[in-house]
Structures are given as C-alpha cells and as structure tokens.
C-alpha cells in the first residue's frame, strides 16, 4: 500500500531521539546489517528491524507502534553489536516498545502481545520483594493474559506443571534439596523494600516528565 505522506508524523523520530537509548536513530543508513544477523529474522523472515527504523524515520508512527514485531525481539543485541553506525538498534526497539505502551495507555493503539503484561508482572515482584518471585509472577501474568483466573490457572499448569515438578524433584524449589522447607516456593524478601518502592516511584515520575 502506498504511504500517505499527509498522514506521516514528522515529529515521531524526535520522540525516539529524546528517549534514553534512542539517541542515535538518525545515524541509520539502511544497510540492513541488523536484519541479516538477527536470529528472529532467521525464524520469521518478515521480521525486519531495518524496515521498522526506516518507517520511524519517515514518521509512520501508528504503523510502527502497533507493529506486533516489536514484541518478538529477544534483546540479544546482535544487531547492536554489528551496526556500523552505532545506532544501538536493540535499545531503539526497546524505546519503541515503551512508546507503544504509552500510546496504548492514551487509547491510540492496541497491543496484542502479552509481553507488556509479563514484564509488568515480573517488575511487580521486584518492586514488592526486591527480588524476582517466579510463582508470584506467574500468578499475576497468566490470569491477565488469559482473561480470567480459571483460564489463567489452566494455562499456567499446561506450561509449567512439568517444569515445576522438575524443580521440586531436583530440590531447587521445595524441601527436597535440604535448603529449607519453602525454598523457592515463598518469595525471598529483602529488608529495604521501602527503597524498592521509592525507586519505582522515581522511575514513574521521570517517565511522566519526558
């Protein structure tokens, strides 16, 4: 489909340039080295970081931010390492994901990928306890992803029943390893949890400032 030039947002590239990690976006000269070495492109041939960057330079804001491909980047940083223009491609995609979340909050787009839910559930456990709590993460993530508590429990069981049993039998979670009765089953909490709360609050305020 042809690009409708009158619908482009010339300011979109500045939005990216102003975010930490997005500073070098305009150095891209479209050589495609990022895409040629990408392990995701190997599996999903339509996945094309070069194209996403070019679209953002052109100002195709809605198309970029609602592109489901943003959410299948594995953050392996191969693109970043190989970019001859030091664009820090991996970080640029992270900036786009953050802008997409903001755009969703503003009601401009809808994100189909469950990845924002996963990242939020992960970070909630860090904010609450100071450390990752796998079970707490799963208990928040699956019901949200599946739309109901029951469906969430079902999906969690199907993904993690075998894994959980292995962790239990190997004594990595639970009493069999002799490391404690509730090892890995209960959250590991740090004492300075108030500092975690303050950190997350500061980050949220910084986000609003931008």
């Amino acid at each position: 489909m042809p690009i409708k030039t009158w619908e482009l947002d010339p300011n979109f590239k500045n939005e990216i340039l102003n975010e930490p990690g997005g500073e070098h976006l305009t150095a891209c000269y479209q050589c495609s080295t990022c895409t040629l070495g990408c392990p995701i492109t190997e599996l999903v041939p339509s996945y094309n970081p070069r194209k996403i960057i070019q679209m953002s330079l052109l100002g195709m804001r809605t198309e970029v931010l609602s592109n489901p491909d943003l959410w299948i980047c594995a953050i392996c940083q191969t693109c970043t390492a190989r970019c001859p223009q030091n664009v820090v491609v991996g970080d640029v995609l992270a900036v786009m994901r953050r802008l997409a979340e903001k755009a969703e909050e503003a009601g401009e787009i809808k994100i189909e990928s469950p990845r924002p839910l996963f990242e939020t559930a992960f970070l909630h456990t860090v904010e609450k306890y100071g450390r990752l709590y796998d079970i707490g993460l799963a208990m928040e993530y699956y019901p949200k992803r599946e739309g109901s508590f029951v469906a969430g429990q079902k999906a969690m069981m199907s993904d993690y029943m075998g894994f959980g049993m292995r962790m239990f039998l190997k004594g990595k979670m639970g009493p069999l390893g002799g490391h404690g009765l509730f090892k890995g089953l209960l959250a590991s909490k740090i004492k300075q949890r108030d500092v975690m709360k303050k950190i997350f609050k500061w980050v949220e305020e910084k986000e609003k400032e931008r």
């Binding site: 930490p20 953050i75 970080d91 953050r98 990242e119 860090v126 300075q192 980050v203």
Partner: peptide, 20 residues
C-alpha cells in the same frame, strides 16, 4: 548484603536499570 534484582531483561526503562 541484601542485594536486589538487577531488572533482568524485563526492565526496559534505562532509568529503572540504573537505579536498581
């Protein structure tokens, strides 16, 4: 002592990574 999570791959905001 009392170390906290680094943010792993899930903290996509650099400010969060820096503070944690």
């Amino acid at each position: 002592e009392e170390w906290n999570c680094c943010g792993a791959a899930e903290a996509e905001d650099p400010n969060l990574v820096y503070a944690l």
